[in-house]
């Protein structure tokens, strides 16, 4: 599947619109919920989705399969653009705290209470993120879904920047191991 994906990008680079349509059908259903989760508004998410696939069409010639799977290529792109959008909105609205609170409410950083319910919602993501200690999971989710930078995370969870950095590093190390060992 990964090879087939890379082939599609190569065909897109050669100007093949049909390859693009297939590529879109394959990746949009993964990328769209991610964007939606980050930007929150459906209209914004549609905009970002279009932007991301337009860039993929335009930049297809620069794709190097040795540097990552097509999935990672698209998902990284989608996350980056979605976070850009969230940060721009945050700057525009000049209200810093409210969106953070909203983002936190949306981010699945659950204490004890309704953990079971949320776990069901989140499906299999728990299997990877769920294996992390709570403190590591929290910082990664704040960056991944709320688009916070390390400094913002430190302010948010009231921990020293160094602590945040360490948690991010350890958390990502763990996630990389999970992915490497999973089939």
């Amino acid at each position: 599947m990964a090879t087939a994906g890379a082939d599609l990008i190569r065909q897109m680079a050669a100007g093949d619109r049909q390859a693009f349509a297939l590529f879109y059908d394959r990746h949009a259903p993964v990328v769209f919920p991610l964007i939606l989760r980050i930007v929150r508004e459906r209209a914004d998410a549609s905009d970002v989705l279009q932007e991301v696939f337009w860039e993929a069409w335009r930049d297809a010639g620069g794709y190097d399969p040795s540097r990552g799977s097509p999935e990672a290529w698209m998902i990284t792109r989608a996350r980056t653009r979605a976070i850009d959008r969230v940060r721009a909105t945050r700057r525009r609205s000049q209200t810093f705290v409210a969106p953070l609170d909203e983002a936190m409410a949306a981010a699945p950083a659950d204490p004890a209470g309704d953990a079971a319910e949320q776990a069901a919602d989140r499906g299999t993501i728990r299997s990877a993120l769920g294996r992390l200690p709570e403190a590591q999971r929290e910082v990664i989710e704040l960056a991944y879904y709320a688009g916070l930078t390390q400094t913002e995370i430190a302010a948010r969870i009231k921990q020293p920047l160094g602590t945040v950095k360490t948690r991010i590093r350890l958390g990502l190390e763990r996630l990389r191991d999970v992915v490497k060992t999973s089939p």
Binding site: T76, R79, T124
Partner: peptide, 11 residues
């Protein structure tokens, strides 16, 4: 990037 993509793919 692959590990973070896997999070989205698991959704």
């Amino acid at each position: 990037a692959e590990a973070l993509a896997a999070l989205a793919l698991a959704e």
